[in-house]
Simulated scan of single mutants.
Amino acid sequence: MTQTAIPCTLMRGGTSRGPYFLASDLPESREGIAQVLLAAMGSPDARQIDGLGGATTLTSKVCIVSPAAKGEKQQVDYLFAQVSVDKPFVDFGPTCGNMLAGIGPFAIEKGLVPARDGETSVLIRAVNTGALIDAVVQTPGGKVTYEGDTAIAGVPGTAAPIVLNFADAVGGATGKLAPTGNMKDMIEGVEVTCLDVCMPVVIARAADLGKTARESAKELDADKDFMARIERIRRAASLAMGMGDAEGRVIPKFAMVAEPAGGSGIAARYFTPLACHEAMAVTGGICIATATMLPGTVADGMARIGPNERETVVLEHPSGQMEAVISTRRTGNENVEVLGGGTLRTARKLMSGEVFIPSRVWAGR
């Protein structure tokens, strides 16, 4: 035997793409899983020519799904893996809200969750952060449908809507809404807001960095001095947030914001972190949108939104727009409690079969 066959389903989730596996089809240890995923995705190699990876951060992602243990409130567990394109490294630290969109359909089609006629709600635990997410999947006649009229920026065409509602979103990585204890901090000479809502994000005003938050991802990536500067800020902020040195790690993330070019919401650019996201991450977008709702942040007063306790915030990103729905409870002008956030995504099944890896990496169970 020269190769090991592993069942997988290749899916687009939101604006990302990658293989979805059942945990029972992979090694039991994280180290074993990491070696299998590197081989399956073709890393490390800038083209990922020998695997399923698409040679970008957004197309080198993996989802691992398993049924929840008895007694747990969630129905399935979702472990996310960010596979480095050009380094032999797999990061199990963050989660991915875009790939999350495919978890519900995958779990239903694999028989982990029974489908209902019309819509099926799938309660998911993000293993990486501990967050609970309710995904509402379209299941007419008790079967998953991927066809529909919902369009999301960064993805051509339309598909069936998938609603993602994040519960217990606050403090998933650090245990605190504002990990530094402040709504604003001066770090590396730049005023930032450090929040932990679905994803820990360091947020700065674009103007303070000499930018507009209207630049394309390629423009920002090409500005090496700028990219080095925000990486210094991110690493210093990580220490201030109690998250340790972020070198070689993808969290916390970094974002910059500005007043919107359109009619409402906020302009934002989100970094992954060593490149600008070509669209907008779901979890990061929810965190940025939350910043617009909280008094005293760098985004306070910048977004064109109302004073409602449940507000839809439009985030302008390089590929278009994303909407995030933020729920809060106000007990005065300065006291705002974040209750949760959600968004609308789509997903599509691209291929179902087996991925082959060299048996020297793993011979299978």
Rank of each mutant, 00 (worst) to 15 (best):
A34I: 11
G42S: 08
R30K: 12
A55P: 05
A40C: 13
S24P: 04
K61G: 03
G13D: 12
T56W: 10
E28M: 11
P19N: 05
T57K: 13
S16P: 06
G42L: 09
V62P: 04
G18T: 07
S16L: 06
G18E: 08
S43Y: 10
G14F: 09
A55M: 09
A55L: 13
M41G: 00
I49W: 11
Q48E: 12
M11H: 08
G32Q: 09
P27M: 05
L58H: 08
T57M: 07
L10V: 11
R17I: 06
G14W: 12
S24A: 13
G32D: 05
D25K: 00
M11R: 11
P7L: 01
L37Y: 03
Y20T: 09
G13Y: 07
R30P: 07
D45G: 06
A46R: 11
L37W: 03
D45W: 12
L58Y: 02
L52A: 10
K61W: 09
Q35Y: 03
K61P: 05
L37V: 03
L52F: 11
L58R: 08
M11T: 12
T59I: 01
G54F: 08
T15A: 04
G18H: 11
I49H: 04
D50P: 07
P44I: 09
S29E: 06
G13A: 04
L22F: 05
G13C: 03
S43D: 05
G14H: 13
R30Y: 11
R30L: 15
Q48Y: 15
G42T: 07
R30N: 15
E28K: 08
K61F: 07
T9P: 00
T57P: 12
C8E: 01
L58D: 04
A39G: 04
I33Y: 06
R12I: 12
R30G: 02
Y20L: 14
S60N: 15
T9N: 00
